[in-house]
């Protein structure tokens, strides 16, 4: 039997042609139900998009670590924030990172934003059996730069567990702590002075850190931010020119520590 010929630039079909599975998890009726835990969010501010995540990973009521990075740079102009079961979420991030770079290098052009958004939706759909069992739910946020408009513009997308994709206007949040901060984001967006879209980088970082502090107050599965103990969040900024990380030192400077 002949191996399938890979579609040019499609890393998943290259894997299939070599009989390698990108994401292969066998649903198991005996698997325990996992607690989801996280607070990740993205908001438009004056210079672009700020994507933030707490750093806690939990299994049930056990804190596994407070050093995890949930905002991942997929390529020079795309960010992924993961919420849900880390095993699936990190594997999705790895598949996307390789796929985007493979396309760019092999086809000598960057994958378009709609194609990137759909690539993540496709992985979520392939993860459906695990999602339906309740042991592999992933609800990510995605941010990418739309080069199809002039000037190029960063956009935020969110997904449901089945893979439906939605463009966010202004902000979106995911994870167990998101319900708390969604209300605050909505309030700030409607009545705040400044509104998130008017904030400078300093103001946006201060706002994001405070949101995570509040989320941690009501959700034990969200790791807090404690500037006095030099405990900060994962923050990345996506501008039309690319991605940059707001490290702990800069976060400390912005909150006056």
């Amino acid at each position: 039997m002949n191996d399938p010929v890979p579609v040019a630039g499609d890393f998943l079909s290259l894997l299939a042609s070599r009989h390698i599975s990108a994401m292969h998890f066998e649903p198991n009726a005996g698997a325990p139900v996992q607690t989801q835990a996280t607070t990740v969010f993205a908001l438009q501010f004056a210079d672009g998009i700020l994507m933030a995540g707490d750093r806690r990973a939990t299994a049930g009521n056990v804190i596994v670590t407070d050093q995890i990075d949930k905002v991942i740079e997929l390529d020079a102009t795309s960010l992924l924030a993961i919420a849900g079961v880390p095993a699936m979420a990190f594997e999705m991030a790895r598949v996307l990172q390789t796929s985007f770079e493979y396309y760019r290098r092999s086809q000598l052009q960057m994958l378009s934003l709609p194609a990137k958004v759909r690539a993540l939706a496709r992985l979520l759909r392939e993860n459906l059996p695990m999602t339906m069992q309740g042991i592999g739910v992933v609800m990510p946020l995605f941010a990418g730069v739309d080069h199809g408009v002039s000037p190029a513009k960063p956009e935020i997308f969110f997904y449901d567990p089945l893979g439906a994709q939605f463009r966010a206007v202004g902000f979106c949040a995911s994870g167990s702590g998101s319900t708390t901060i969604r209300s605050i984001l909505s309030y700030q967006d409607r009545f705040g002075k400044p509104r998130p879209s008017e904030m400078s980088l300093r103001e946006a970082v201060q706002f994001a850190l405070r949101l995570l502090m509040v989320a941690a107050e009501f959700d034990s599965a969200t790791g807090g931010v404690n500037p006095s103990a030099q405990s900060f969040a994962t923050l990345k900024v996506l501008e039309s020119t690319g991605v940059r990380t707001i490290g702990a030192d800069q976060q400390a400077e912005f909150v006056g520590q």
Binding site: F11, L14, L15, I20, R94, V95, T98
Partner: peptide
Amino acid sequence: RQAAIDSAHLEAFT
């Protein structure tokens, strides 16, 4: 070029 890119990305992924 394509063969080299395929091999490198398969190696990196696996």
